[in-house]
């Protein structure tokens, strides 16, 4: 009997050790500095509140802790879109003024690999900036650092909200240096193909209601207008 108990304890211990190794793995961090920080292109910075309750609209299957917003919004409960969420927000420029509207559609990615610290989501942003034009950003995002550094500590800290400073670049592809792909459609963006990066800054997370203070940022590199060489 004591060997059976020893075997069971050993199996439990091994699993716990493995998951502890995953959780504390120092090689699965994400950058906090955008790969576009060194670009020579003009950069457009757009920020937005990433708190669902402060968005114009946020919906998903509706069965987790975060409440869809506003009330009576249709939920995405059908099997094919069950792991999808839609987020509509005002985008602000660097000075905090209204810059436009962003619609983000995001779903879980089958490329998620816990063993390498990749909790991936595929998303697109459909963006309209009045007086400038429209574009789509497609990207994969890695939420492992967010889960490890914010949501798990928040849940383990049963009595209170998580308070702190979390800032990471969430975009992990498809660009080779971890950038998203931007396709311009109309206005100043017509025909352009460029790169962008989305980052997330969290200061307060409630295990009961989700993010309390969370800001997102989209950095879009704008290619310089092509100037023909002088003859």
């Amino acid at each position: 009997m004591k060997y059976v108990i020893s075997l069971a304890l050993g199996l439990l211990n091994g699993s716990l050790l493995f998951f502890a190794g995953l959780y504390f793995n120092p090689f699965t961090g994400q950058a906090s500095v955008s790969p576009l920080a060194v670009t020579t292109d003009r950069v457009v910075d757009l920020s937005f509140s990433a708190v669902p309750g402060e968005a114009i609209l946020y919906t998903y299957h509706g069965e987790a802790i975060i409440r869809p917003h506003p009330e009576w919004v249709a939920e995405l409960w059908e099997p094919a879109v069950y792991n999808t969420n839609v987020f509509v927000t005002m985008l602000q420029d660097r000075l905090g003024g209204a810059a436009g509207i962003g619609i983000k559609m995001q779903s879980h990615s089958e490329d998620t690999a816990l063993i390498s610290g990749q909790v991936l989501a595929n998303s697109i942003w459909h963006i309209y900036l009045p007086g400038q034009g429209t574009m789509m950003i497609d990207q994969s995002e890695n939420y492992w650092a967010y889960i490890r550094d914010v949501t798990i500590p928040a849940r383990m800290n049963s009595g209170d909200n998580w308070l702190g400073t979390f800032h990471r670049v969430m975009t992990s592809g498809p660009g080779s240096v971890g950038t998203a792909r931007v396709s311009g459609s109309s206005g100043d963006f017509a025909g352009i193909t460029t790169e962008s990066v989305e980052s997330l800054t969290v200061n307060n997370y409630s295990p009961a209601t989700g993010p309390v203070s969370m800001e997102g940022n989209l950095t879009i590199a704008m290619p310089q207008p092509h100037v023909a060489p002088r003859e």
Binding site: Y3, S6, L7, A8, L9, G10, L11, L12, N13, G14, S15, L17, F18, F19, L22, P79, A80, Y82, N83, S107, H108, S109, E110, T112, A113, L114, I115, V119, L120
Partner: peptide, 26 residues
């Protein structure tokens, strides 16, 4: 027994995490 079970469990959990997809979309 405890040590062998621990090692086997680490390898088994690792193999499970590697081979079983964490996300299987409909």
């Amino acid at each position: 027994t405890f040590l062998i079970a621990t090692i086997l469990s680490i390898i088994g959990t690792g193999a499970l995490t590697w081979y079983v997809p964490a996300v299987d979309l409909h």
